[in-house]
Design a protein around this nucleic acid. Sequence first.
DNA 1: GTCCCGCAATTTTTT
DNA 2: ATTGCGGGAC
Length: 750
Amino acid sequence: MSIYDTLNNKQKEAVFHTEGPLLILAGAGSGKTRVLTHRIAYLIEEKNINPWNILAITFTNKAAGEMRERVDDLVGYGSESIWVSTFHSACVRILRRHIEKLGYGSNFTIYDTDDQKTLMKDVCKKLALDPKVFKERAILSAISKAKNERISAQEYRQQTAGDYGRQGIARAYVEYEKQMKLNNALDFDDLLGKTVDLLLQDPEVLQYYQNRFRYIMVDEYQDTNTVQFEMIRLLAKEHRNLCVVGDDDQSIYKFRGANIKNILDFEMVFQDACVIKLEQNYRSTKTILDAANSVIRNNRGRKEKTLWTENEEGNKICLKQFESGFDEAEFIAADIEKSRREQQDAYRDYAVLYRTNAQSRTLEERFVAESIPYKIVGGVNFYARREIKDILSYLKTIDNGQDDLAVRRIINVPKRGIGLTTVNRIQGYAEERGIGFYEAIRVADWVPGIGRGLTKVESFAALIEFFKAEANEKSIRELTEDILKQTEYLERLKEEEGEEADSRIENIQEFISKIVLYEEDCESRNEPATLSGFLEEVALVADVEEGEEERDYVVLMTLHSAKGLEFPHVYLAGMEDGLFPSYMTITEGDEEELEEERRLCYVGITRARKTLTLTCARKRMIRGEFQFNKMSRFLQEIPRELMGLKEGYGKGNGSAGKGGFGQTAFADRNFRYRELQKNPFTASKASRNFGDAGAKALDYQVGDRVKHGKFGEGTVMQMVKGGRDYEVTVDFDVAGTKKMFAAFARLEKV
DNA sequence: GTCCCGCAATTTTTT
DNA sequence: ATTGCGGGAC
């Protein structure tokens, strides 16, 4: 009996195929992580490969951590010398060693999205770009896109020579790169890009890593972008033992540069590639899997595969339409509570998934009202929070004053009377002399025109110098606590009062625990806990790990964050056209974007193990106003025989107007999608409010065909209530999309 | 230099 | 609804 006996034939094939390029198409729930970890074990124990020669790459720290753990369990001796890391941390590791060959200092700082934005703001100001035309975010996203395609600032400028709009971006790109270099800083895209530059430029370095990484494995391969692909291609060129695992149907990150071609064209780039499909699903019921298959089947650009399972049929899928998002939330909360009691499940067996973060609020309010423990996953990055960035900036400045952004961030935080004028003067002086911002601060008395600001700046410099001295003697924790004390940071926060301030204080506490954890960790490994080391670790980590994994709560998160997870019971909320698929996707009419949304739907469905509940609402509060949506087109793609009756529900039918909840949307045997829109099986108090609100009821609604006196026939896309009228968006067959008020438009239903 | 108010913007997210 | 930001008032 060996560890490989528990694998199915396809999985075994993938594990035992160790030489040459290999593409594993692993459907959802087909055990791909098991295959990867067993493959590593097999390489070491059966093929006698030195663990030193293995590289396993993932996208997130979490995935890397999990894989590391499972490999450690499986492989005895030597597992610690396997590189299991994210793309970015692998790159940092390589760059810290060799980046001097590219003219950077090896102590480069890593700029996160926030830092990029701050820098870009400066750049725009410097270039006098009209902020109405050039938005920082847009420029940065253009730059990121360029970097992902390995287009340098100079190349970009040449390409856009004739194009006024993009010329501005090109100028910003050039200046941005210049500033980054001056600050000895790299952004996340650079980490990848500079690594590729290095490998291309220095044959010795390339050879070293090619020789080192004889066996390379890449997880979530469908999410790789062009640069990542290039990096892998270079590293694998010599030994060609490249194993990539992915699922084109789960590619949902095109918007951040993932190139689906990497997986679709793998066999073309690596002509002798072996392809293995893992299609047996161990996670979901037959019903859920059938639904997932029938949705994803509608995509064109994909590798044909059909998941199957030996699991039982399971319950029917439940679909419900509600009058409003509030009713939807009410149902979900109550249904979870009811189901949990009946089935003796834990809260953690339930997940509610949605398309946009904004949807979490309504749900959250309901969960609070019902006192159901819940946790919202995602949202703002822990390390991107203001208070955390403030403290980090202090630590960075103390560690080395080279990061101008960090110094500028804290020079007046907490307020110490150093204003923009003074900062600009120092900045100007620094630029003139070609020195860093902090250096200029230390010689502030040389700065022309600094005037009364001088005392304050000098005292700031003295404070930092004091901390610097302290950093040599004290632990990071003690230093941090002293920063908080000396600057009265906490006191200022406490003065603010309010929930927000409280949570900021909590975050700081949590940050300190994080430091303690790091220090203990270093101690246990007999390494010195250095400030630089801590900052390094923090730079590539998005979130704090939950120290309270044990706690029992319902999980609320976006479909994106749900990838890679599974739950016995899943609710997909907000299954509405305009929300999911998103309004942008529908109006742009880009088939590829719609397919990405469909993949997202596929990901959502396949998270469920036992039961799946789909919900949608006819109207939903979005940005302060009600938006009317029809059911998601994806619901149409699920065969109706998979949808079933679910027992009626309600907190006792006594409470007014709630009786309608129990109706299943598919009670009618002759169900057709269009009928659902006209005759939703819903009834609730909300419909009354709506009828009385003053706006005259209209005989058409979203999805209907209407006729206009001038524009001819079209389809109603959206109806937004405004004041005493509706603003109706109609997609006319000939005239295109128009927005109009119902009272004036005199639309007639066709 | 700081505060406050009005205005725009607002899919999805990791590193 | 909420939040961040720029501009004007103090």
